[in-house]
Design a protein around this nucleic acid. Structure first.
Lengths: 162, 162
DNA sequence: ATAAAACCTATAGTTACTATAGGTTCAACT
DNA sequence: AGTTGAACCTATAGTAACTATAGGTTTTAT
């Protein structure tokens, strides 16, 4: 069912993610181990491709590996078994384990939503400012650049350092 | 004129950026060296605070240090002198020097604009998906989570790995 | 005047990759 | 079927961007 089998190079080409990075994501259990050929080379399915694209995009958007792990858990309907992939290799002292994560998925989704909305606001501010810079430049007008003011706006912080 | 003088701890508190990170940004010339007290302690102005807020927000949004350096150059009206801060410590072989950077600031602004619009699209997709997950959960409906599909959409790539 | 909190430099450790070395497998020819 | 070059393999070392620790000095609040 998992259809066409991509080599690691093909996967790299499709996603823009470098080959050693793909192997790294496998080592840290972010991407499941794919089946291998007789000669031990990796062969990936479309599912792997989608998951890797998600990871790459999320990293570009500034999410940490741990946040991505959580988002991926939200995306799987948690079949209560086979979570060999997404598990935390060292479940520290009073930290969160998978059971709790799937339990309050809603809370986690809400937290990420707030973070994402903050990011969108700040990016929109920066976008508008860059646009008017470019416009001013094209029409020959001078325009004192306010990029710093735009992104330094404290109101848009999602983190609570108050 | 630069008014109130923040200690490094106060700056950290205001921005959420950790104290060693602030010193790190100074070492790599991203944040200008502030004046010091008799006893060699750093004292920052409002200008430093804004610049640091910009840097922190931009990092959270996934911009690299080098991109931030460029964006900060766009924000300064390049007075053609005193660029002790934003300069590139090792101007490699055929690479860009500051003069060129300020020369084609417009090109750079356009590149960043494209990157930012890509980020906004992907974040909006993720936001909408998280919203409907939360809604479904609150109204007791089941909702097969499609977060992965949303962010793995290849159309929204800004990078050109085709 | 003193003592805790905050600061200093220097350096070592962490996270998330990224590159290199030295060897094996695959696939496309002859 | 044999060969050869690109792509793959593991293991390990290096880089970017922080982050923590050690050991000492300065500030600030009593």
């Amino acid at each position: 069912m998992s259809g066409s089998r991509y080599s690691i190079g093909a996967l790299s080409h499709e996603t823009g993610c470098k080959v050693p990075t793909i192997r790294y994501y496998e080592r840290i259990k972010l991407l499941p181990e794919p089946p291998r050929t007789e000669g031990k080379q990796r062969r990936y399915s479309k599912t792997h491709l989608d998951r890797l694209r998600f990871i790459c995009h999320a990293r570009e958007l500034g999410f940490s590996i741990e946040s991505i792990r959580q988002l991926l858990l939200l995306g799987t309907d948690v079949p209560e078994k086979s979570k060999e992939c997404c598990y935390n290799p060292n479940p520290a002292e009073g930290s969160s384990c998978n059971v709790e994560i799937s339990h309050n998925a809603d809370e986690i989704a809400k937290q990420h939503l707030a973070e994402i909305e903050g990011k969108i606001s700040r990016l929109s501010g920066l976008r508008d400012e860059l646009k008017s810079m470019i416009n001013a430049c094209e029409s020959g007008h001078s325009h004192s650049c306010r990029v710093i003011e735009v992104l330094s706006n404290h109101q848009l912080c999602h983190s609570d350092h108050r």
